[in-house]
Design a protein around this nucleic acid. Structure first.
Lengths: 261, 261
DNA sequence: ACTTGAACCTCCAGTTACGTCAGGTATTAT
DNA sequence: ATAATACCTGACGTAACTGGAGGTTCAAGT
């Protein structure tokens, strides 16, 4: 082993771009132990340290934590270890990427939804975001209880389509919040019921609604618990009544029809 | 405000999928304060808490930390805040995504490099990873000191091309490590020098090498400090001599030629 | 009414990979 | 010799929890 310890910790820090504190820390946990000048206590680094630090940084870049890195560097067979763990690492990072993509999708959708619109009620935003978040689970559920084709139809919409539908639901929910409490037979209220059903139909498709009709209440509740509703309990109850009344009036009673979103 | 506190913390935890311990924590930091049964001290949750927790989860999903979420939920104008901050959030996540992509690229390249190959020296792996990590900086540097065209040629290679080149460098470095210390005039050693120069040429291109020749030593050193070398200092010095001798023998002396990788 | 086990409580410690003081010593430049 | 700079150790803070210890309350069965 050579012993040309050319660098003080400051020089070494500048040369490698790693902060002094970090070097202290690596020394402390034994990951990169410096030589110490016995009289002054100052740390000294040499070429060997540069090489080792490069390894540390490379492995850190690949996502290993310092403990793992420590083990990999003492085990001489870095290679064997790497080959085994890299696959796991890859999977983990791919999961992270999927998550990131979902988040970015949610952010982008929310941005374009807010754009130009004034004062979107927060409940709606939340329900939108939650629905993006749970989209996969919902889709799986829907596929399980109906069919792949229906699930595809409901969830494979273009961005513009989605944006338009979301906008429609915003308007509707605003109406709900405006009219809540009014008697169900009020013409304005019944017009709302009509629009609400139309929108659900557009959102969820006719076949899906038909399939929904056949399910047990319990199953529907499972699904609803995944879908964040933008309404308060009060609003929800009122809307239930409004739509029930509307359907009875129009001879199409089915109490689950409006639960699409 | 309604006061129908229907859930114990256990029920609430199951209903929402948030751990009891996390609910304790949110209560403690005042993010989601539960009602307390005064006689027992047990926490009680109701519908309102569900709604609020949904908001918290949605905002967490968008990448806000708990403090930010707390502020957003007390400020009634969730909306205004959102619209401003979402753009930042978007940028931050896009950066994260870029980083992730780089890491995944490094992992994938390393995996395919290790695949089928037995016992790749760790120094090479490290230098490969470091080079992916610093690719952007290197490219910027190269563009600055030579030209965009050259940088493009050096760095825009297909995956297969890169893999083949990396394999070649592995073989070469194995040879270096095998032959190190032998006299420079040994025919085997000179054959190595030849191959090394060929590989550098393929890797970096003729124009780039030409451009390199015009640079100051200092500038080259800057660049090299970004490129992790797979060699020890001893090997590096020996290789320098070998190649210098080779070039002198073949009437093409230029001491920077072999520094491509 | 009694017991038992599950559910709940509070308080404390630990996690990662450092950043940021504070208070003191060593080296270097003038 | 003195001042500025570099370095030291030790301690605390961070974010968002998780886990455990040791004690209390609730629900159900006997």
């Amino acid at each position: 082993m050579r012993n040309d310890l050319d660098f003080s910790i400051g020089k070494f820090s500048k040369k490698t771009g790693v902060s002094i504190r970090t070097l202290h820390y690596y020394d402390e946990i034994g990951l990169l132990k410096a030589q110490k000048d016995l009289s002054s206590g100052h740390r000294l680094y040499g070429e060997d340290h540069i090489v080792k630090l490069q390894k540390i940084l490379a492995l850190k870049f690949l996502g290993y934590n310092l403990e793992e890195i420590g083990l990999m560097l003492t085990n001489t067979s870095l290679n064997l270890n790497l080959q085994e763990t890299l696959i796991q690492q890859q999977k983990a990072f791919e999961k992270k990427k999927e998550h990131l993509d979902k988040v970015l999708k949610a952010i982008n959708q929310t941005i374009s939804l807010l754009d130009g619109q004034e004062d979107v009620p927060s409940e709606i935003l939340i329900s939108l975001i939650n629905n993006i978040q749970n989209e996969e689970d919902q889709r799986t559920w829907l596929e399980h209880f109906t069919s792949k084709e229906i699930a595809d139809k409901v969830y494979d919409k273009s961005d513009e389509e989605n944006l338009a539908l979301d906008r429609e639901f915003i308007d509707l929910s605003r109406e709900v919040k405006r009219l809540v409490g009014k008697p169900v037979h009020d013409p304005e209220v019944q017009e709302l019921a009509n629009k609400h059903l139309q929108a659900s139909l557009k959102y969820v498709g006719e076949e899906a609604i038909h399939a929904f009709g056949k399910l047990e209440d319990e199953e529907i509740e499972d699904f609803q618990s995944m879908m964040a509703s933008p309404y308060t309990e009060e609003e929800e109850k009122w809307l239930d009544q409004v739509i029930e009344y509307y359907m009875v009036q129009n001879g199409m009673y089915n109490r689950n029809l409006h639960n699409g979103k």
